[in-house]
Design a protein around this nucleic acid. Structure first.
Lengths: 113, 113
DNA sequence: TTATATATATCGGATACCCAATATCTATAT
DNA sequence: ATATAGATATTGGGTATCCGATATATATAA
């Protein structure tokens, strides 16, 4: 038995969460956020935590994801003191644009007018 | 110019598919589509194929997904001749509402104004 | 009845995502 | 130089998602 799933409010627990965990959208979300503002890893993890209403992603999640995007040539890194700032390459911009189009087409109509 | 469909697929990979495969969003997508119109399995698979611009989901994907949602009490089935029509329960509507809220919050700003 | 076509259901395996724990690196302070 | 704190990186493992193939069910046609 799963104790109620009705808890609301800020926590939202797994939030909306018995039907999907948004697994598989992390790379997309990172590209999107970096396209708005270059950030370093922990800053990114914090932003994602706020948006999803969850705890910060584990280092074992965020850094391999960044590494993957870097190996695809979608982002580049630049050291800035103690941190590494990631930003989109032209190729990354292009990939994001395509991914966005597919995303919007797939979920068309899901947003309130 | 700009005639026709977006060509996803050739060239640099899978077109937006290099950064995410939307794995984990299937249950959410099904709930959303069924909330707009009750459908049977193959109809649903066809609608999803059109939205994603891909081939129809394999039976091994769509039916287990529907079974899972049924076991969660989010959808019910009703036989209609040769097919089985799925529709949302009250619990499913509620879960969709929560999931939508999280989805919108997570991807806020991703849509062109 | 049998044959055919379509929808539904299940099984085995491959893939990819994500986390917890651990290790390495960098800059600053002492 | 060492110590400390924070950021970054890697490893190992659990789990859910998804596909291809196969099996079952239903309705229609002959």
């Amino acid at each position: 038995m799963r104790g109620g799933m009705d808890r609301e409010g800020d926590g939202e627990g797994k939030g909306g969460g018995d039907c999907c965990d948004m697994r598989g959208m992390l790379g997309f979300l990172i590209l999107f956020l970096l396209s708005k503002k270059p950030m370093h890893g922990q800053e990114l993890a914090g932003e994602i935590a706020i948006r999803k209403g969850e705890k910060k992603l584990s280092p074992g999640t965020i850094y391999p994801a960044l590494k993957g995007l870097k190996e695809l040539g979608f982002i580049v890194e630049e050291r800035d003191g103690k941190t590494i700032v990631y930003s989109l390459t032209d190729k990354g911009e292009k990939a994001l644009k395509l991914a966005k189009r597919k995303f919007i087409k797939t979920f068309f109509g899901i947003f309130p007018e």
